[in-house]
């Protein structure tokens, strides 16, 4: 038995959880439908998970989905909860969580910039954060080819070989 069981039981009673994984004693991964994420996060925040540690995205290009990953942390018990939601890959949109965790502002800008996911209700998320004057598709998408972009934008040094050794294959 581990310390997160009570928490998971409580969450199971209130929300529809698709899957629960326990990678570690103090960590819980919850796969959840995107309808319930905001209520889950506000419940967790009220429950002592005051810190949003990370908001990021994963591009599952074969399944044609984006997965948003929210990690929240409870400073009193030291428990991490990782909530995952799936979005369709074409025209990905999701509701912002800035009313719950205001610190998500920069994460949402980051995810919007690198994955092109739009966060409704957060007008700030359209501002560029890291990339200046970016005009291609968001660079962290799997179908973006960074090498071709680099070759086109940043010319490489061409080396002229001074000496090419002749190799004889001895049978």
């Amino acid at each position: 038995m581990n310390s997160t069981n009570k928490l998971v039981e409580e969450i199971r009673q209130r929300f529809e959880i698709i899957d629960v994984i326990h990678p570690d004693d103090q960590q819980v991964i919850l796969d959840i439908d995107k309808m319930h994420l905001h209520t889950l996060l506000s419940h967790l925040k009220a429950d002592g998970f005051r810190q949003l540690s990370l908001l990021s995205a994963v591009d599952w290009i074969k399944d044609n989905i984006f997965e948003l990953v929210y990690i929240v942390f409870n400073w009193d018990t030291g428990v991490h909860v990782l909530a995952r939601v799936k979005l369709p890959r074409d025209n990905p949109r999701f509701r912002t969580i800035t009313p719950i965790y205001p610190g998500a502002q920069y994460y949402e800008r980051d995810v919007h910039e690198f994955f092109g996911i739009e966060f409704e209700g957060n007008p700030m998320s359209y501002k560029p954060l890291f990339l200046e004057l970016w005009d291609e598709m968001p660079p962290m998408r799997k179908d973006f080819d960074p090498e071709a972009y680099s070759r086109e934008k940043f010319p490489e040094r061409v080396y002229v070989p001074h000496f090419v050794p002749k190799v004889e294959v001895i049978e």
């Binding site: 291609e136 972009y149 680099s150």
Partner: peptide, 13 residues
Amino acid sequence: GGIYFDSYATMTR
């Protein structure tokens, strides 16, 4: 360009 010669963000020369 070193080891990240193919990155979308870094200069190569």
